[in-house]
Write a protein that binds this DNA or RNA. Structure first.
Lengths: 356, 356
DNA sequence: CTGAAAGCGCTTACAG
DNA sequence: CTGAAAGCGCTTACAG
């Protein structure tokens, strides 16, 4: 910057004003400064700017566990939204335990992030940290900022299954203390309606398995009359699908298996999984926008409503609809259990049918 | 810092020296400064330090595609290694195309990262950027800094399959231009040995499928005598597994399916996948260590050898061994194709057997 | 062993 | 419309 100022015989202040468009500088000078800047390959020092303005232009992303299969979707969406808004993204891994989450938040704070996006660990309530925070959890969690409408996603799936004629459905979850899972299950039950019988099975996470793995007894469930297995995550759905297939139970002609999240493999397995997808791009855009509103001093006076009792945690409770992605034509078999009524989808690959 | 100095009646320089242990300050004063600092809840401004020292303490992580299912493993390992070394990690997504990769690198550079870890897109040769770069690709890629020994991983898998008696193996890859995949396939062939017949099938990535998906014709291959399907990624292995199961071909009693990378679901499917795992923790540690060696001015004179013709790209070509994880007891059936010679693994979950 | 001074590169009131 | 000055919070030679 001083090089530009020297070359042009003007002051650094003028160069700064010209480049930022803040101060009133004559159009001709602005042009000259710009030209010189690009000629000299000028790259502003964001560090110096940060020291002066007190803002680093960096946002933190705190996740319960980076190893989570959903992480790629989240990270990609946040990174994209942030970089469109001119912000960088620093990652922090809570590695499971809650102490590590606090520590991770602390590290980000030390690095001077202007705000952070937190996907909290189950049951964690994010307290007031030293900067604006957008929480992505579920609409039913207090202090949530923006998230997918998991309940609605569940209800879409439930209606879909009910419409296909399923009357006995097994819901599969992994954590009864997860707000997300409870919302999804609540939605599923509501969508299935009162005349559909359903049970909920809470399964444990598998650490390491060999051979036949850790069977859930799903074949018995199928024999007991369950025709649909609705998992609250694609990972559980995949576990169910392979266990059923292995037991010789045809999917989807005998039973249907559905998941949640549209993880990368769900379109790739045979048969592909019917699932519900979060609109992470929109969620990320809203989260970043909320953060920026809190960070950048808008001309207007402060809204007041935004920063209520939660302190820095922005509570707006935006609900972003989820998308049902139907990949199996999971019509329930006729009473009697004939297994080949199912109309095979042609082999030519076609785009997954996406409903609303 | 100035608050501490004022409270103690010393200079800011002394506080700085006391806290950093650089200058020679009397032990008693150091203690007093420390006490005051923690009493005042002093948090040093990393921004100011960065401006002064020219180093930000932040490393960039550039990935070909954050949506890649391997991303969680990589990001977690890098974040962990970096934060142990006192560095933060800024992420950048190349979102597939090569222009975006260049742009992502540029954004990180503008933010003043001290160095970066790049997992390059296939076929990309990382040129000299403005800071130290550690490249994670394959040992056979020129300019590679550290990576798993994919060839060795393949050969471990090949030997394993050969020992189990497989004599006709189908290798499955998705990209003939990928160095990683070619290394893995080269290793597989070498490990299988000359007396094992093998074909390589290059399959296309599935964008979106519905119903029966996009079958690879694997059932025909099984009928043609292939008894093992060795994919170079767990994703392809999963695709193969579900397609074979769907076609009524028993895995593992009729054919075996193996993958690579030990992605999260590979232990969860039935039957669990035999796979090969990268030691990402070690790879990350080596990458970060190499970066730090290049960033932090060690007392000694520069090594010379490290920064050869590649400019800032550190070429050390460390090979980190891979781990074979046997989850299926995939003994090949007796000649004649009887399908129930396979000894079922007991249902009790046991830890996956990990070999070297 | 300790302190005064300069400066990293910017931006922001404030004068002119 | 343009410039001189101060200062963000640190660290690093250099004196004392």
């Amino acid at each position: 910057m001083s090089a530009i100022a020297a070359a042009l015989g003007v002051s650094a202040a003028t160069v700064s004003n010209a480049l930022s468009g803040k101060g009133r500088v004559s159009p001709e000078l602005i042009e000259k400064v710009r030209a010189k800047a690009s000629e000299l390959g000028y790259v502003p020092s964001l560090t110096a700017r940060a020291l002066r303005t007190g803002r680093t232009g960096v946002l933190g992303l705190v996740l319960p566990d980076i190893a989570n299969p959903l992480f790629p979707q989240i990270a990609q969406a946040i990174e994209n939204a942030a970089s469109n808004a001119g912000y960088g993204v620093l990652i922090a891994d809570s590695r499971g335990d809650i102490a590590a989450q606090t520590e991770a938040i602390g590290r980000l704070l030390e690095r001077g992030v202007d705000g952070m996006v937190i996907v909290p660990r189950r049951g964690t309530r994010i307290a007031d940290v030293g900067c604006p925070v957008a929480v992505i959890d579920t609409p039913s969690t207090p202090g949530n900022t923006v998230s997918a409408d998991h309940w609605d996603g569940g209800s879409q799936m439930g209606r879909h299954l009910a419409e296909l004629g399923h009357r006995k459905v097994l819901l599969i979850g992994t954590s009864a203390s997860s707000n997300v899972q409870n919302d999804r299950i609540g939605g599923l039950k509501a969508g299935l309606g009162a005349q559909v019988e359903c049970d909920t099975m809470w399964i444990e996470k598998v650490e390491a398995v060999s051979g036949e793995g850790c069977p859930l007894g799903l074949a018995d469930k199928a024999r007991a009359g369950f025709t649909a297995f609705a998992a609250v995550s694609d990972l559980s759905a995949l576990r169910a699908l392979t266990e059923l297939q292995r037991a010789g139970i045809g999917v989807p002609e005998t039973v249907s298996v559905t998941g949640f999240d549209d993880l990368i493999w769900s379109a790739v397995v045979t048969p592909a999984l019917t699932t519900v997808r979060m609109d992470m791009a929109t969620i990320a855009d809203l989260a970043i926008a909320a953060l920026i509103r809190a960070i950048e001093p808008e001309g207007e006076a402060e809204n007041g409503a935004e920063e209520a009792s939660t302190g820095n945690v922005i509570s707006e409770t935006d609900r972003v609809p989820m998308q049902l992605i139907v990949r199996q034509s999971t019509a329930v078999p006729q009473a009697g259990g004939i297994s080949n009524l199912h109309v095979q989808t042609p082999n030519k690959p076609t785009a997954g049918e996406i409903t609303s």
